[in-house]
Design a protein around this nucleic acid. Structure first.
Lengths: 136, 136, 136, 136
DNA sequence: GTGGTCTAGACCACC
DNA sequence: GTGGTCTAGACCACC
């Protein structure tokens, strides 16, 4: 009755990226939760284990885990590890909030850069999967 | 001998923003060039003048101007000032390149966050000016 | 975990020179790369360390490192340091481009000063290592 | 018996150049002297005249003329203008000194940049007029 | 007046 | 510890 089997998640850390490593870790875990790869009470890989595997400073990982705990996506048990804390509803809401925020931020940035709705529409048309009109 | 009258450009510096001040200055000048408010060989406001007006350190402004010089949007004349270096073609190309890059970066980021084309389309539909289909 | 041992390079800074200090630093690093003393992904001496060693302001060094980053010879990792980004091919090309440019600039300058090919040839003959003809 | 007819000299001022304008003026006058276009006691164009023609600040021109006076290539007469002061011997010597200095400076720079005699020789071979060997 | 380089020192994010 | 941004102020060359 192995209650607490460690579940892993996809993690591609780009150490050269401008995005801080701890943010990359947080994003990877969040997406694993949103896409249901990580479920409620799943035990995630330990700080030490992830550290040696990806050659990342343990403090950096702890920062990511700690912030996710603050945000309510993880909980920790002393001497045991970090566990996922979520529900389908919460997952969905968080995912939608993130989507909304990212799109709004992008539009805000584009306008502050001086681009118009028309500019954006023109460019997005080059990606038919995004802009095409479903007729039915 | 007032061949070189100083041309101004709109500059709203938000000191608290996460975007560095020198980036805000660069963006403002670029957009003034892209939108033809600043034309080839226009003299732009001097480092010191802009410095006292917006209460920004001259070095910060020089950093912005210097990088724009490196990028080919300005040239400087010692003892005289900074001048715009562009052409309608270059302006258009630069603007389009920026638009293309920003949109591509945004999409890349959204996918890496785990969002699908479908997610994006749904969210963009909330901004009819961007996504609406012109039928005629 | 000492994957990234700092590699050093020769640096003779002449504070009194007409050549800006940051240019001297840039040249020293470039030449270390061109001559293979610095290889891809080598960690170079930190801004602060170099600063205290040569008694140069950190900003001056950061300016040099930053420009080399823009030119594609370095990349930086926050909280970690600056690293070399190159390949033998790129190194060779950059070195040859620099050689070509310097020689072309020199010749251009000499002609604009009114000197002829004949003048130059005569003067270069005084430096046998440059002008001598290999007969075999 | 028009003793003091103004002699002109070729002057291409590149206002965008990194070379200070007064240096460009000095070089142009020196080369006109070295090439015998300007002879001893020739009257050169007045500060004011040159200023309006090339749209250069009179102070800049005066700085050039003044330094040439200090160097012994010009002399001035109050209320009359600037005149050439030279001799074929002096002209020749000055020209050769300049040639020697420019070549020595160039070689010094190339070595400090890490290039070898071999590198230079290779590059100069691309300019056959400079490097070719006269066999007879 | 103009730009250009540099210093000393602060404060921040990241590791 | 690392890089990154910014300030205040100095000094220089050039116009």
């Amino acid at each position: 009755m192995k209650k607490f089997e460690t579940k892993s998640f996809l993690l591609d850390v780009d150490v050269k990226s401008a995005i801080p490593i701890y943010e990359q870790i947080k994003d990877a875990i969040k997406m694993a939760i949103f896409s249901r790869q990580l479920k409620n009470n799943d035990k995630i890989i330990s700080v030490r284990n992830l550290s040696t595997r990806h050659n990342i400073n343990p403090l950096t990982i702890l920062k990511a885990y700690g912030q996710l705990e603050t945000e309510g996506f993880l909980y920790s048990r002393r001497g045991s590890g970090f566990y996922v804390k979520t529900s389908p509803e919460k997952s969905n809401k968080a995912k939608n909030d993130l989507l909304k925020k990212e799109v709004a931020d992008f539009l805000k940035k584009m306008f502050s850069l001086g681009f118009s709705f028309k500019d954006l529409k023109k460019e997005l048309k080059k990606y038919p999967e995004v802009s095409e009109n479903d007729q039915n």
